[in-house]
Amino acid sequence: MNYVEEALKGNQLAGARLIRLLEEGDPQGIEYLKALYPHTGRAFILGLTGPPGAGKSTLVDRIITELRRRDLKVGVVAVDPSSPFSGGAILGDRVRMQRHATDPGVFVRSMATRGHLGGLSRATGEAVLVLDAMGYDVILIETVGVGQDEVEIVDMAHTTAVVCLPGMGDDIQAMKAGILEIGDLFIVNKADRPGADEVVKQLQVMLEMRTAHDEDAWRPPVLKTVAVRNEGIPDVVDAFYAHRDHQERTGILAERKAKRQMHFFRELVKEMAAERIFGAAEGSAEYDRMLEGLRARQIDPYTAAETLLDQTLGGR
């Protein structure tokens, strides 16, 4: 099978196998990705983050339905944590989305973090590129949802929704710094439970303090949903598109895309440089001596790192 040609035609098997190659860091995967790259950049990329159990996967399920109603093809990348002990993972986000498993306009891929921090997995961005090239109009990314370190999603998504739930008032206070920054919209899910209105109010007050007072600034809406009962979903989808329209109109989208591109490039250089440097050094007697020295604390790691870089890249 010609993976690239088939993926571009929307062949799910080809796309799935490509993503798998990329997830495993197979160099051939990168070659395929290069060929796909000119066909990317069209999809609307949405992020959903928020604490575990807030209802992110249930919301994704309902949002898929709403987007399909609007005749859009939907790709999903759902990230769950790997066990730091076994390296294994149970990826359960899909349970909530299985009604779409027989819809050819929907593609759901679960990913384990495999030790990557920041709420995503190392290959999430690559999976998104593949889905983009395959022609999915909207790509939803569900982050791990540890609620602390979810910053990566902002670099990847065009629009990020933070999912909250009733009864987390104090938590919102505690995490407001990070969480308020990343949300383009806020969803208070499980609004069938008491306390939803208080959380809405609290978020609104905090957002009000944060938002710049210039007229053109985006004001993140706070929306109530009951995902299990499919309530409030069209408003969420409308808000996603309202944010995108705003970003397009103000030129922020182009700016954000360019920034993301730069960020991605820099990360890539770091990763590839490290790989090459260690690859070149490993096995040499000199490198072994250096490691020995480090273990025995005869060299400090700063001097060692500088020496290694000088040797591989030439002196400064």
Partner: peptide
């Protein structure tokens, strides 16, 4: 299987 290092996709 998770405890033994496998990535398990559970579908419900």
């Amino acid at each position: 299987l998770q405890e033994n290092g496998y990535e398990v996709i559970y579908t419900g």
